[in-house]
Design a protein around this nucleic acid. Structure first.
Length: 732
DNA sequence: CTCGGGCCAATTTTT
DNA sequence: TTGGCCCGAG
C-alpha cells in the first residue's frame, strides 16, 4: 500500500497522530498547527490503509462549517466522495439518529426542531399558564435553566429543589415545558442530544448496533464539549472503540455556555491507554506573534502545556497604540488600513477583533466616513429572520399539525382578526383537553363557543392551512415554499406594514428563501428512506441557520468578536479595546477561572494574526453613555516588552506607558503633582507658543497619556485648556 | 392591531 | 448611548 499521499507533507507529530494504531488518542493541536489536516488525514488513513469501512467512522464537529470543510477535504484527499461516513455536528448527528429511530425515541415521525427563539416563546407562554411573573422569571433565564439541566443530562424528575422555592418553580416550568414539547412533537437543540443519548443508553439493542458499527470516533474542538456531548461520545464509543480527540485547552473559550475544559484535562485519566500528541509547530504566524502568544498564555495555571514555534522568521513586532478615546482608536486603525491597502494588500486580509459587539459601532461609522468597505460578522442569520421564520412556520404546520409553536406564530400573522382573546380561548381548550391547538381550532368553527366573528376568522385560517396542505402536496420543494408564501400573503403584508427599505428587504429575503429551496439538494439517504424533501429542508433550516449577510463579493475589512474569530486567520489583525473592564471583561475579573478564559480569548485573538498584529486601547471610552477611564488591560503587561513597539500619539506625557500602571485593576487616575514635569518636557511655568493663540505660559495640567491637557495663559488670547495631542505646542 | 413614549439593562454564541 | 420591551392610547 502506498501511503505517501496520506503521510507526505505531514510533520513528525502529525504523522504520528495520523498513523497511530487504534487506541484512544488526544491530539493537542495548537493554533495554526494543522488540526483539521490531521483529522482529515487520519480518516483517510483509516479508510485507505487500515481498510476501515466508511460506515464504521463517526466524525463529530461543533459547527456546520467545520463539518462541511472536513467532508470536502476528505473527498479532495481521496479524490472521491465518501458515502456512508457519518461526519457532522453533534446536533446534526443526534438529529439523524432520532429521525432513524423516532419510534424507539418516542417521537412522532414528523417531529420538528425548536430553535432558541422558538424555545423562549414557548417558555414565555408556559410562564403565563403557570401565572409566573415574567419580571421575576425572565424567560431567557428560565430557558437557560432548562438547557443547562439538559446539558448535564438531568430531567425534571432527577432534580431536587432542596427546599429552595425558586428552584422548585424552575423545575415545575421545566416539567411542563417537557410535557408540552412532547405533545407538540417538537424538540429543542439540547433535547436532540439528550434524547439520542437516552435512546442509546436505554435501548441495548441499538446501543450494541451502533457500538458495533462505529469502530472509530473522532472529535474536533474537544475542549468545547459540554458534559452531555462528552457523555454522548463515550456512550457511542463504549469501552472498545477508541476516541480520537483533537483540541486545544488553551483555546477553550466557551466555558460560559457549559463547555467543560475538564473534559480535555481529564481525558487521559478516563482512558489510561490514551496516547497524547502535541502539535506545536505553527504554520500561520511569524515568530514574534507566537512568542507573544506563548508568553501570555503562560500566565494560566493547570494547562496541559504547549509551546508554539515556527520555522518562519520573527517578522514584525507587535504594535501597540494608546488611543485617546475610542474615536481616536478607530481613526488610527482607519489610517493603518488605508496604508495597508495603498501598499497593495486586500482589505479582506484585515480583521478587527473586539471583545463585545457594541465596540463595532465606532468602527462602522468611521469606516463609513472614510468609505472603507467592511463586513460585520454576527447578528441575525438568514433562517433566523422573522419573515423567513414566518414562512417556515406555515410549512412546519402543514407538515406537523400538532406543532403548536408554529401555530402560535402564524395564527394571526398576517393579521386576520384572531386576537389574543380568541387565541387564549383556543389555548385553554387545548390545554384542558391535552390536544394540539390546530385540532381545537378546526373544531372551534362549529362548536358555537366562539362569537360569529371569531369563528369566521378561525374558519378562514383553518381553511387556509388545509388549502396549503392540499395545494402543495404534489409540488416540488421550491414551489411549495412559493405557494405557501403567496397563499399566506406574507409579501403583501410586509410591504404594507413596513414601507420603504425594510419591507422590501423582507420581500427580497422571502424570494431568497424560494431560491434557497430551489437550490436545496435533498440527498436521498439510504438510512432515512422516509424523510421527504420538505421535512429535510425544514430540519436543515433549523440546524443550519445560514450565513449572516450575503457576501457582496466586495473586498471588505472583516469585523467580529474574538469568539467568532476562533478558527480564522488574517494577515493583519487589529485587537482593540485592551482595557481593564472591557477586556478582560468586568464580569470575569473576579473569578480566577473566568479570568483565565479571558486570557485564552486574548490568546485566540493574538494567534489569528499571520504577519502583523496591532493592539490598541483607549484611555477614555464612552460606555453606556458614560465616559469611562479604564487602565490598560493587564494582558498588555504580560507581553514581553521586546516584542512590542509602542506607538504613542505625538506627545509623551508623564504616564510613561501602559507598563507604568502597577495595579491595573484600580480605576484611579494619577493626579497631577504641581511642578512635576511631563514626559513631553512640558511643565507648569513653561513658556510655550501656539500656532493660533501665540505665546503664553502653562499654568495648570491634568490628565495623562493622549488625554493630557494643559492650561495656558496666553498673552493675547487669555486662559485656555488645550489637549496636548492636538495643540502641538512649542517650547519657547 | 399598531404606534409611540417611557423605562431598564447593558459579554461572549452554536446548534 | 442604544436597543428591547411593555403598556396605554387611538
Amino acid at each position: 500500500m502506498d501511503v505517501s499521499p496520506i503521510l507526505d507533507e505531514l510533520n513528525k507529530p502529525q504523522r504520528e497522530a495520523v498513523s497511530a494504531p487504534p487506541q484512544p488518542m488526544l491530539v493537542l493541536a495548537g493554533a495554526g498547527s494543522g488540526k483539521t489536516r490531521v483529522l482529515v488525514h487520519r480518516i483517510a488513513w483509516l479508510l485507505e490503509v487500515e481498510g476501515i469501512s466508511p460506515l464504521s467512522i463517526l466524525s463529530v464537529t461543533f459547527t456546520n462549517k467545520a463539518a462541511a470543510e472536513m467532508r470536502g477535504r476528505i473527498q479532495r484527499l481521496l479524490g472521491m466522495p465518501v458515502g456512508g461516513l457519518w461526519c457532522g455536528t453533534f446536533h446534526g448527528l443526534a438529529h439523524r439518529l432520532l429521525r432513524m429511530h423516532w419510534r424507539e425515541a418516542n417521537l412522532p415521525q414528523t417531529f420538528q426542531i425548536l430553535d432558541s427563539e422558538d424555545q423562549i416563546r414557548m417558555v414565555k407562554r408556559l410562564l403565563k399558564t403557570l401565572e409566573l411573573d415574567e419580571n421575576r422569571w425572565p424567560p431567557r433565564q428560565v430557558a437557560g435553566f432548562i438547557n443547562a439541566r439538559k446539558d448535564e443530562g438531568s430531567r425534571p424528575q432527577h432534580l431536587d429543589d432542596r427546599g429552595d422555592p425558586a428552584q422548585r418553580e424552575l423545575i415545575r416550568v421545566y416539567s411542563l415545558y417537557e410535557e408540552t414539547c412532547q405533545r407538540n412533537g417538537v424538540v429543542d437543540f439540547a433535547e436532540l442530544l439528550l434524547r439520542s443519548l437516552e435512546l442509546l443508553r436505554d435501548n441495548l439493542e441499538l446501543q450494541a448496533h451502533y457500538r458495533n458499527r462505529f469502530r472509530h470516533v473522532l472529535v474536533d474542538e474537544f475542549q468545547d464539549t459540554n458534559a452531555l456531548q462528552y457523555a454522548w461520545l463515550r456512550l457511542i464509543a463504549g469501552d472498545q472503540n477508541p476516541i480520537f480527540a483533537v483540541g486545544d485547552d488553551d483555546q477553550s473559550i466557551y466555558g460560559w455556555r457549559g463547555a467543560k475544559i475538564e473534559n480535555i484535562h481529564n481525558f487521559t485519566r478516563h482512558y489510561p491507554s490514551c496516547v497524547t500528541i502535541r502539535l506545536e509547530q505553527n504554520y500561520r504566524s511569524s515568530g514574534n506573534i507566537l512568542k507573544a502568544a506563548n508568553a501570555l498564555i503562560d500566565n494560566n495555571r493547570g494547562r496541559l502545556g504547549k509551546k508554539l514555534w515556527t520555522d518562519d522568521r520573527d517578522g514584525e513586532k507587535l504594535h501597540l497604540y494608546a488611543a485617546f478615546n475610542e474615536l481616536d482608536e478607530a481613526r488610527y486603525i482607519t489610517g493603518r488600513i488605508k496604508q495597508w491597502v495603498d501598499d497593495g494588500n486586500l482589505r479582506s486580509d484585515v480583521a478587527i477583533l473586539y471583545r463585545s459587539n457594541a465596540q463595532s459601532r465606532v468602527f462602522e461609522s468611521t469606516f463609513n466616513e472614510n468609505r472603507i468597505p467592511y463586513r460585520v460578522y454576527g447578528g441575525l442569520r438568514f433562517f433566523e429572520r422573522a419573515e423567513i421564520k414566518d414562512a417556515l412556520a406555515y410549512l412546519r404546520l402543514t407538515s406537523n399539525l400538532a406543532d403548536d409553536p408554529s401555530f402560535e406564530r402564524i395564527v394571526n400573522h398576517p393579521p386576520r382578526g384572531i386576537g389574543e382573546r380568541t387565541v387564549d380561548m383556543l389555548r385553554q381548550i387545548a390545554r384542558t383537553e391535552r390536544r394540539p391547538l390546530w385540532e381545537v381550532a378546526a373544531e372551534a368553527v362549529d362548536s358555537g363557543e366562539f362569537t360569529a366573528r371569531a369563528a369566521g376568522a378561525i374558519g378562514r385560517f383553518v381553511h387556509l392551512i388545509r388549502q396549503m396542505n392540499e395545494e402543495i402536496k404534489s409540488l416540488p420543494l421550491y414551489e411549495q415554499v412559493e405557494a405557501v408564501i403567496s397563499l399566506a400573503g406574507l409579501k403583501e403584508h410586509f410591504l404594507a406594514k413596513e414601507k420603504g427599505e425594510t419591507g422590501q428587504a423582507r420581500v427580497d429575503n422571502l424570494n431568497e428563501l424560494v431560491t434557497a429551496a430551489n437550490g436545496y439538494v435533498h440527498i436521498q439517504d439510504d438510512e432515512l428512506p422516509d424523510m421527504d424533501e420538505l421535512s429535510s429542508f425544514l430540519a436543515h433550516a433549523a440546524l443550519e441557520a445560514g450565513e449572516g449577510q450575503g457576501d457582496a463579493g466586495e473586498d471588505c475589512v472583516q469585523m467580529m468578536t474574538l469568539h467568532s474569530a476562533k478558527g480564522l486567520e488574517f494577515s493583519m489583525v487589529f485587537l482593540c479595546g485592551l482595557e481593564e473592564g472591557l477586556f478582560p471583561h468586568q464580569m470575569s475579573v473576579n473569578e480566577p477561572g473566568r479570568l483565565e478564559e479571558e486570557r485564552r480569548l486574548c490568546y485566540v485573538g493574538i494567534t489569528r494574526a499571520e504577519q502583523q498584529l496591532v493592539i490598541s486601547y483607549a484611555e477614555q471610552r464612552q460606555l453606556h453613555g458614560q465616559t469611562r477611564f479604564n487602565p490598560p488591560s493587564r494582558f498588555l503587561q504580560e507581553l514581553p516588552e521586546e516584542l512590542v513597539d509602542e506607538i504613542r500619539p505625538k506627545v509623551q506625557t508623564y504616564q510613561t506607558s501602559y507598563r507604568a500602571q502597577a495595579r491595573p485593576a484600580t480605576n484611579v487616575r494619577p493626579s497631577h503633582r504641581p511642578g512635576s514635569q511631563t514626559e513631553s518636557g512640558f511643565s507648569i511655568g513653561q513658556q510655550v507658543s501656539h500656532a493660533k493663540f501665540g505665546e503664553g505660559v502653562i499654568t495648570n495640567a491634568e490628565g495623562a497619556g493622549a488625554h493630557a491637557r494643559v492650561e495656558v495663559n496666553f498673552e493675547t488670547a487669555g486662559r485656555k485648556w488645550l489637549v496636548l495631542v492636538y495643540a502641538s505646542l512649542q517650547k519657547v
